[in-house]
Every structure is written in structure tokens, then in C-alpha cells.
Design a protein around this nucleic acid. Structure first.
Lengths: 188, 188
DNA sequence: TTGCTTATTCAACAGATGTTGTTAATTTAC
DNA sequence: GTAAATTAACAACATCTGTTGAATAAGCAA
């Protein structure tokens, strides 16, 4: 989760992946995920189609990677110290998920069932990993509270981002926070 | 949700769809969803591939339909009276989701990310629809508690079905039930 | 620089996808 | 009971997919 493995990469690889991701991002703003072909991505990125497959298994894996990176930015903007559980960190995590979904819904021309499903499970996994990381020092098994909390956090955020009349984000999180915290604080 | 629209259907349509669904079911037992092509489905169903597209947009929609139908069977086996909320109905709903996931995991040769994602959102939508239906008489807006409850129910069931050492199902549901019920009883 | 390693390109392939225009069968209405 | 309207079934098409093998180019270490 935490260590960023990007640094010591062949500059050609960095360049190519960057081009692919950027191309994909701009295509998502134009059209449905379903209607984006690998061809489209490589055309806009100005690389060969075979090169794409050297870096990503298929367009679904590309989406996962893209979503993960995008979400990571939101996380890192919010949580200064990601190393261990704190009530502040949790609060910021919830905020980050809400913000991420908001950002996603403005910057993508969807919605599409498959797309939403993949985003959902990608984020839930990231949140789960982060929570597990926070709870790793605990002596009891932590997968149950981490699972429950990951579901709760995403569910709350997703609900927030679909509300017609959204309350102030901070106010919303004030209400949501204790529902999640109670599951975690006994382990952290 | 409740009314079953199958009855007054062209017998040709019923036959064709039945063949497709049956073929798909047996293919899921053999291999990964990702590796099942529309060709495979229509070959086994002994219909033309184009006919498939007259009935389903693509194989993802087929999966949704299949999952919905399968889940509906579990629902109807359990809940004798689906018309309105009762504590018994809710308990049976939770049981039905747990049983469904169990059945799915034994009868399908997976797991695969995409597959799980689509199952998840399909079931969550069905549960949400049923809960909304139960709460429809309420005067206050019910989408919030229905959303939260749908997430909670699926999260609990999914967690149960992934536990290495599963407790007795009824015992598990006894614990899970109040967590969900508290959200609903104030509206029902 | 020289050579070694590895990334990218290109052409070509078999197979899968989704669409379209036509034919044949089934319903419906008279 | 027959004619007209509907629609399932089909064949053929252009496109997309994922992979392979060989040629080229970019990075890197000595």
C-alpha cells in the first residue's frame, strides 16, 4: 500500500504508462467506459496497440490502475500521517472517499453499470488495505472490522454522492463518522 | 419488483430465453465468466448468435438477468409474504442473501473480479428495491435507510460467505439482524 | 565509446463482437 | 380463414481483441 514503487523505473516505461493513463483520462471525459476501445486509447496516446498489452492486461485493469492512482492522490492530499489509526485519519479517509466520488462523477461521462461496479470494488479494496494497515499491530484478527468499515465508508460516501440535495460535506461526515469509528476503536 | 412479467410472453421468446439462460448456467459451472463468449452460449443453446443480441444487450446484461432470476428463487423460497415489512421477512431476506452467495460460490467456477463486482451490484439493487417496496407506505423519504440497509445486508452476507470457518448460518444471522433492523423499524 | 539489456514498433493472425438487411415464421385483426 | 403486421432467426460485414515473431531503438553499465 504505502511504499511507492514508481521511482526507479525505466524512463521509457514511465513515459508510456503516463501517455496511456493521460489518454484514458481524457477519453473518459468524452465517452462511456464501455465504448472506449484499446484502439482509442493507443491512438490518442500515440503508441502501438501491442505496447498497451505489454503494460496492462486489458482495459479493465487499466481502469483499476487509473482509479487507484486517482484515489491515492485524494488520500495523500488529506491524510498527512497514514501510518497508524487516529480519529483524525479516519475522518479524513471518509472525506477523501466522498471527494473522490464527487470528482469522478464530474470528470467522467457516464454512468454505466459495469464502470460503477469496478470503481466500487477497487476503492473498497484500497480502503480495506489502508484500514488493515492501520490495525496491523492489533493481536486479534482484524479482517472483520476492516471489512465492515470499508463497506460502511464506501456505502456512506456513495450515498452522499448520489443525494439530490447534498448537505455540507463536513456536516455529513460528522454524522457518518461515529457509525464507522465504533467498529475500529476497540482494535486500534 | 414483485409482479412477475413472464406470463404473457410470446412462447418463442420464452423458449429462446430459457435456452440461453440454461446454456449460460451450465457454462458458468465449467469456466470463468471472462472466458465465456457469446458464441459459447449460443452454440450450447443451439440458436444463432444474432438471436442472442435480440434478447440481451451483451453478456454482462445476461449475467445480471441470470443473477436476478437465481436470487429471486431464493427470495421466494424464503419469504412467504413479500408485500410488507416484518421482522420475519427481514430475517429471511438476510438468510436468502447468505444462501444465494453460498450457492453461487459452489455452482460457479471462479472467482473473477469483474464477475464478483457485477453480482454484488445486481444483488444490492434487488435488495434495495425490495426494501423500498416494504417501506413505500412510509411518509418520509426512505431511500436513505434502504440504501444503508442494502449495503449492510450484502456486506454481512458477503463477509459470511468468505469466512474460513463459518459459524452456523442461523447463529450468524441472529447477530447480524439487529444491526440492520434498527435502521428500518423506525420507518416500517 | 562499446556492447548488453530491455522497451517499443510493426505486420499479421485467429477469434470474438456487435450491427444490418433479409428471410421465414408467428400473431393479430378483419 | 386469409391478409397484414410483427418479430425471431439468419448470414454477412466491418470492427475490435489479444498474441506472436522479428526488426528497431532507447537506456545503461563498464
Amino acid at each position: 500500500m504505502l511504499p511507492n514503487p514508481d521511482e526507479k523505473l525505466d524512463p521509457r516505461v514511465k513515459r508510456t504508462r503516463g501517455l496511456i493513463l493521460a489518454s484514458f483520462e481524457s477519453l473518459l471525459a468524452e465517452k462511456n467506459f464501455k465504448n472506449i476501445s484499446v484502439q482509442d486509447v493507443t491512438d490518442k496516446a500515440q503508441i502501438n496497440r501491442a505496447t498497451f498489452y505489454a503494460h496492462f492486461q486489458d482495459k479493465y485493469v487499466l481502469l483499476e490502475t487509473f482509479i487507484s492512482k486517482m484515489f491515492m492522490q485524494d488520500i495523500e492530499k488529506r491524510t498527512l500521517n497514514v501510518c497508524s489509526y487516529s480519529s483524525d485519519n479516519l475522518r479524513n479517509l471518509i472525506l477523501a472517499v466522498c471527494e473522490f466520488l464527487g470528482r469522478l462523477h464530474t470528470s467522467c461521462a457516464q454512468p454505466h453499470q459495469q464502470f460503477e461496479s469496478l470503481v466500487e470494488s477497487t476503492i473498497k479494496k484500497q480502503v480495506f488495505d489502508l484500514l488493515s494497515y492501520w490495525l496491523r499491530k492489533s493481536k486479534v484478527p482484524t479482517d472483520i472490522p476492516a471489512t465492515v468499515a470499508a463497506w460502511a465508508i464506501y456505502g456512506l460516501a456513495s450515498h452522499y454522492s448520489h443525494m439530490k440535495k447534498r448537505p455540507i460535506l463536513d456536516k455529513f461526515v460528522d454524522e457518518a463518522f461515529p457509525l464507522v469509528a465504533v467498529n475500529l476503536e476497540q482494535f486500534a
